[in-house]
């Protein structure tokens, strides 16, 4: 006799137990994640100032407006600059540091604890610390430059048009480097010792070992770090909002701070939601692209080392 799918799954009683146990989690998940996504999309089709019910339906007009809005594209481009520079510099430095820790450094345990600190402290605290360090007159950085006799290098770091974005990115690198370091260090430790030993016996120099063994074996980890960078860098709200609020003249505006400004400060909630959705699409497309590229480039050589 054929079993009904339900009885194969343990009957009504087991189903009820399962749903009772999962219900609290699913309740919050639907109320604060799925339902808001639906509302956000609906709101993006309206002109809404935040008061009363949604009634001014405008169709895709908000999306069309975003496509013509140069400050939106500036924010996106700043966000991509932030992401690109952060990922490149932070991963490169993290790779070098991880390799040094891997090679053996005196007191590496203590270094591990200390180097991870910038990633532990609240992002909002980092933002305030660094805005005080960058402060033009009493800030640590300009004082230090003054004491070293490098007065020519002093700047109004966060206020100057040429230095603002770079200063913000530097803080973001300071923040993300420890994380990349710990992940890369973990990946290096997992490299089989025989492999390195064999290369050393064959007379390979340190640099060639890095280039031909360590680097290729950590590429999957680096790709993972790229995905995490994308996901995080589009949420880097705290740093930008606390340090510059997107200024001067929108030069450090990124996607999340732009959405916040348009929504909560200018009360264009419909438009802000349209922009947020576009950002969501861009991020998802970017992550999918990386996943696709990675699958293509690795499918050929899978199993090479394992």
């Amino acid at each position: 006799m054929r079993q009904s799918p339900l009885s194969r799954k343990g009957g009504w009683k087991r189903q009820a137990i399962a749903y009772c146990m999962a219900f609290p989690a699913l309740f919050f998940f639907v109320l604060y994640l799925i339902y808001p996504l639906i509302i956000a999309f609906r709101m993006s089709l309206y002109d809404y100032s935040g008061i009363g019910p949604l009634k001014d339906f405008v169709g895709w007009a908000n999306y069309k407006e975003a496509m013509r809005d140069s400050s939106f594209f500036d924010a996106l481009s700043n966000n991509f600059t932030l992401m690109g520079v952060e990922f490149a510099v932070s991963t490169l430095l993290a790779f070098i540091l991880a390799y040094m820790l891997f090679k053996g450094v005196f007191g590496w345990r203590a270094f591990n604890v200390i180097l991870f600190l910038p990633y532990i402290i609240p992002l909002s605290v980092s933002a305030v610390i660094w805005s005080l360090i960058y402060e033009p007159t009493i800030g640590l950085l300009n004082q230090l430059l003054g004491d070293l006799g490098l007065k020519g290098l002093q700047h109004t770091w966060l206020g100057g048009t040429s230095t603002a974005l770079g200063s913000v990115i530097a803080v973001w690198i300071w923040r993300t480097l420890p994380f990349n370091l710990i992940i890369l260090f973990g990946a290096m430790i997992k490299i089989p010792g025989e492999l390195l030993e064999a290369a050393r016996i064959d007379g390979a120099s340190g640099f060639r070992i890095v280039r031909h063994i360590i680097f290729p074996l950590t590429i999957p980890t680096i790709v993972l770090l790229a995905v995490i960078s994308i996901a995080n860098d589009f949420r880097a709200f705290d740093i930008v909002w606390i340090m510059t609020q997107g200024g001067p003249a929108g030069l450090t505006q990124i996607a999340s701070s732009f959405v916040y400004k348009v929504g909560f400060q200018e009360n264009h909630y419909g438009y802000a939601n349209a922009v947020a959705f576009l950002v969501f699409v861009v991020v998802t497309a970017f992550v999918a692209l990386i996943a696709l590229l990675q699958r293509r480039s690795f499918s050929g050589e899978k199993g090479g080392f394992r």
């Binding site: 994640l33 808001p36 709101m43 935040g50 999340s256 916040y260 909560f264 947020a276 991020v283």
Partner: peptide, 16 residues
């Protein structure tokens, strides 16, 4: 949803 950027959610959650 692990990849949904928080700005997408914050406004509607506020209204809810």
């Amino acid at each position: 949803v692990l990849f949904v950027p928080s700005p997408v959610l914050l406004m509607p959650v506020f209204f809810i």
